[in-house]
């Protein structure tokens, strides 16, 4: 708990694209993701849900076509967003989140989640709370590494990514690889919740900056 959470430098820009309804680019160290949000927009009849909005996430890799891994991550991001977005307020519409990986230097899924949240904020879609993504790597020598780089990810024994909501700091999503004990999991959650506080403060600052202009 007393471990100081050292995230890499993060930065964000909102409303940088003209065509989508909301857009954001999120940087974590050298990892960068660009998000474009469309919605509430027209929906295909085959995908229409009569009592809520259809949420769709498209993850575009830096090079090549999306493969199984991207599809898996799309699903993870979609489920996280669905837990937070108040989709029942816009029934029979579609909300599309397009995420373009600009550069991947570790903690990509966390960066995607952060970009998606900033994009949703910019688009002004109704949400119960904010969410953020935090990645923890477990190393045999150094314990928990927050927001690991590519190299640290490869060297780690286990890698855990959490999505945390801002209202009660609850865990919305966990995805992991490698082996870890229950205590380590709890430590990781506690560390991520601390890191989430920093990220939410950053969200608040960037939104304040956006609205100070008008």
């Amino acid at each position: 708990m007393d471990r100081d959470c050292c995230l890499r430098v993060f930065a964000c820009e909102q409303n940088l694209l003209s065509r989508p309804d909301g857009s954001a680019s999120f940087l974590q160290g050298d990892t960068s993701v660009l998000a474009g949000i469309y919605g509430p927009a027209e929906v295909k009849v085959s995908k229409e849900i009569f009592d809520k909005a259809t949420l769709e996430v498209i993850l575009k890799p830096k090079i090549g076509l999306p493969a199984v891994q991207e599809k898996n991550q799309e699903q993870i991001i979609r489920n996280t967003c669905e837990a937070v977005v108040l989709a029942t307020l816009h029934p029979r519409t579609s909300i599309t989140i397009v995420l373009q990986v600009v550069s991947d230097a570790g903690s990509l899924l966390a960066c995607c989640l952060n970009a998606a949240c900033m994009g949703l904020l910019d688009a002004g879609l109704p949400m119960k709370s904010l969410f953020c993504g935090v990645t923890c790597a477990l190393d045999s020598e150094r314990g928990i590494i927050l927001d690991p780089t590519d190299k640290q990810e490869k060297e780690s024994r286990a890698l855990l990514t959490f999505a945390i909501d801002s209202l009660e700091k609850k865990v919305l999503m966990i995805t992991s690889r490698g082996s870890y004990s229950i205590e380590e999991l709890q430590q990781c959650i506690a560390t991520s919740q601390k890191a989430a506080d920093k990220l939410f403060q950053f969200y608040r600052d960037s939104v304040s900056r956006k609205y100070s202009k008008s």
């Binding site: 708990m1 709370s129 801002s166 939104v207």
Partner: peptide, 28 residues
């Protein structure tokens, strides 16, 4: 301990509406 922390945060965040007028607010 973690749960205690989160409850504490929630109480801290609840602000009277009139104090936040004219300020930016975020979902949640």
């Amino acid at each position: 301990h973690v749960l205690g922390l989160s409850v504490y945060i929630m109480l801290q965040m609840a602000v009277r509406a009139e104090q936040r007028v004219g300020q930016p607010v975020l979902p949640g």
